[in-house]
C-alpha cells in the first residue's frame, strides 16, 4: 500500500485563505468572528470543534453558499465556488446523504454534470469512474431507498467526486453512521484522496476521526467561532487499523483532546 502522496509541484501552496472573516445571522447570533485560516493545496484539513462553533458555517462560506458579513476570502486563481465554469471545481458532501429519492444511483451521481449540460451518455465514463472509486458500480440502477446508510453516503461522495473537484468540502459526513461503517468509509476516503490528489476540508466533532484522517487539524472555539489551535500530523504516517491502536495515534489524540478542551473552556 502506497503511503506517501506524490508531492506535486504545487503541493502545500495555499489554495484559499480566509482573513478576519465574520458571519452574523440577524443581529443576535455571531457564528464567526475574526476567523483567519488557510487551506493548502493537497492537504487533508479537519475543522474540529464542539457543536455551534461555526465550523459548518466556515465550510459554507468557502463553498460560496453564504457570504461573509465581514473580512474576505481569497482564492488563489478563480473562485472555486463560482459555478460558471462547466465543471465546478468544488464538491460538497452534506451530513445527510441528500440524495434525490426519485433518481437511481446513476441519476444521482449524474446530477452535477447534468446541471452543467452533460448528457447521460457523455457523462457515463465519469459517473462509472466515480462509482468505482466508492465501490458501488454494481448498484448503478438501484434506488436510494434500497441502500443502507453507509451506501447512501458513498453515493453522495461519488456525486461530489464526479466533477473531479480540486477541493472537496465535507460537513460531518459520517456523523450519522455506526462505528464499523465509519471506519470503513474513513479508509476508503483516504484512498480516494490519495488517488485523486485533491484537497479535502473535513468538518467533524470527533477527535479520533480527525486525527486518523488529517494532515492538519484546526481546533475551533465557540461564541464567537474562530480558530483556537492548530495541530499538524505527519502525512507520511500509514493510516490503517494498526495506526488506530498505535502509541503515536493515542498521543496525537490526547494532544487534540487537550486543545479541544482548552478551546471549550476559553469560551
Amino acid at each position: 500500500m502506497q503511503q506517501t502522496r506524490p508531492a506535486g509541484p504545487e503541493a502545500g501552496a495555499p489554495l484559499l485563505a480566509l482573513s478576519g472573516v465574520g458571519k452574523r445571522f440577524g443581529n443576535q447570533v455571531t457564528a464567526l468572528e475574526g476567523l483567519d485560516m488557510e487551506v493548502r493545496r493537497g492537504e487533508f484539513l479537519s475543522l474540529l470543534g464542539p457543536s455551534g462553533c461555526g465550523k459548518s458555517t466556515a465550510l459554507r462560506l468557502i463553498a460560496g453558499l453564504a457570504e461573509p458579513t465581514s473580512g474576505r476570502i481569497d482564492f488563489n486563481g478563480e473562485h472555486p465556488g463560482k459555478a460558471a465554469s462547466p465543471h465546478p471545481s468544488v464538491g460538497f458532501v452534506f451530513q445527510e446523504p441528500t440524495l434525490m429519492p426519485w433518481a437511481s444511483v446513476f441519476g444521482n451521481v449524474h446530477l452535477p454534470l447534468k446541471l452543467a449540460g452533460t448528457s447521460r451518455r457523455e457523462a457515463e465514463p465519469a459517473i462509472m469512474q466515480a462509482l468505482e472509486l466508492v465501490g458501488l458500480e454494481a448498484f448503478r440502477d438501484a434506488y436510494p431507498r434500497e441502500l443502507s446508510g453507509g451506501m447512501k453516503m458513498r453515493v453522495s461522495i461519488a456525486r461530489a467526486l464526479v466533477t473531479k473537484p480540486r477541493l472537496l468540502l465535507m460537513d460531518e459526513p459520517f456523523a450519522a453512521l455506526d462505528e464499523i461503517t465509519r471506519f470503513k468509509l474513513n479508509n476508503d476516503l483516504l484512498q480516494v484522496w490519495r488517488q485523486l490528489n485533491c484537497t479535502i476540508v473535513f468538518v467533524t466533532h470527533s477527535v479520533f476521526e480527525s486525527v486518523y484522517l488529517s494532515t492538519r487539524i484546526l481546533v475551533f472555539r465557540a461564541r464567537p467561532g474562530r480558530v483556537a489551535a492548530e495541530l499538524a500530523i505527519d502525512p507520511s504516517l500509514e493510516r490503517d487499523e494498526a495506526f488506530r491502536t498505535s502509541p503515536e495515534y493515542v498521543a496525537l489524540c490526547r494532544q487534540a483532546s487537550t486543545a479541544l478542551a482548552a478551546a471549550m473552556n476559553a469560551g
Binding site: A63, L65, A83, F94, M100, W102, K114, L115
Partner: peptide, 29 residues
C-alpha cells in the same frame, strides 16, 4: 424541497428552470 438539495443545485450552478424541472416538480409530484 430539501434544503440541502437546494444548496447542491445552487452549488452546481443550476438555473431556475433546471431547479424547477429536476428538483421542485419531482418533490411535489
Amino acid at each position: 424541497v430539501d434544503a440541502n438539495l437546494r444548496d447542491l443545485f445552487r452549488l452546481s450552478g443550476a438555473g431556475r428552470l433546471q431547479t424547477l424541472r429536476l428538483l421542485q416538480l419531482p418533490t411535489a409530484l
